[in-house]
Design a protein around this nucleic acid. Sequence first.
DNA 1: GTAATATAATTGCCATGACAACTAAAATTT
DNA 2: AAATTTTAGTTGTCATGGCAATTATATTAC
Lengths: 130, 130
Amino acid sequence: MTFKLDNSLGYLLNRTNTRMKNNLLHHLRDYDVTPEQWAVLNRLWEKEVISPKELAELTSKDLPTIVRILSKLEKKGFITRKINPEDSRAYLIFLTIEGRELQGKLTPLALEALIKQQGGLIKNKSRSLR
Amino acid sequence: MTFKLDNSLGYLLNRTNTRMKNNLLHHLRDYDVTPEQWAVLNRLWEKEVISPKELAELTSKDLPTIVRILSKLEKKGFITRKINPEDSRAYLIFLTIEGRELQGKLTPLALEALIKQQGGLIKNKSRSLR
DNA sequence: GTAATATAATTGCCATGACAACTAAAATTT
DNA sequence: AAATTTTAGTTGTCATGGCAATTATATTAC
């Protein structure tokens, strides 16, 4: 059976995803926030007090990945964590004022990224991703 | 303006892509080949003698990424490289016999991965990726 | 109530992937 | 033909992401 990479769903999906993520990365660059960090922030803007475990489930990432993203967000001063008084294994994640303020700044940039990339996402296989 | 992550194209695309890649990773595990290495091998199965630069364009990855993938494929004995006699900056990539034999082994596994994941790719936001 | 098990978080290793800086070798300018 | 610019490849840094192993704490079994 023949298999043509160029026509495969996985290949097209992967390339499109890479381009969209990269596009978003550049739009968020001024605030030093990556697409993944932005996704985590989105969850926090929806529901503030939450555990890393819950965040992992909501973002479909594993716990180590989330923990590392949270460390970076904490270092940048966008979130804080406290031990959950009802379960000392677990943490509770809170937004800082700066983290809360980011929503108004980043959302327009993310929407701009979306609009700019309408059309031309999948076409043109040899275009650079950069 | 409201923005709901769960409904956004980028989010759904990213999650679907991650799942498909992971699924493929598991199907190819027996041969110690990652989805990205598999993509590069596919290009070589289509067109044998090729430069890293060309491979980078064909796979929509940048040169450093391709170079590192090629190093791994070389270490595993699936490819070799020779300096291009017409341009001593450039390399030519060749498949080894083992690398050529992989096509018959990996393609059925990749197709199996594709078939197994039809349905259920996007639904169910909280399912683990593992 | 203690032992066994399960769970939340952390840490380490490896593989992409973006990107900057660098080297060496063309190709182009003048 | 010498100087400039471009190009192919390499290396280093940082951020995911998969996964295994470890730690500390809860939960369950007995």
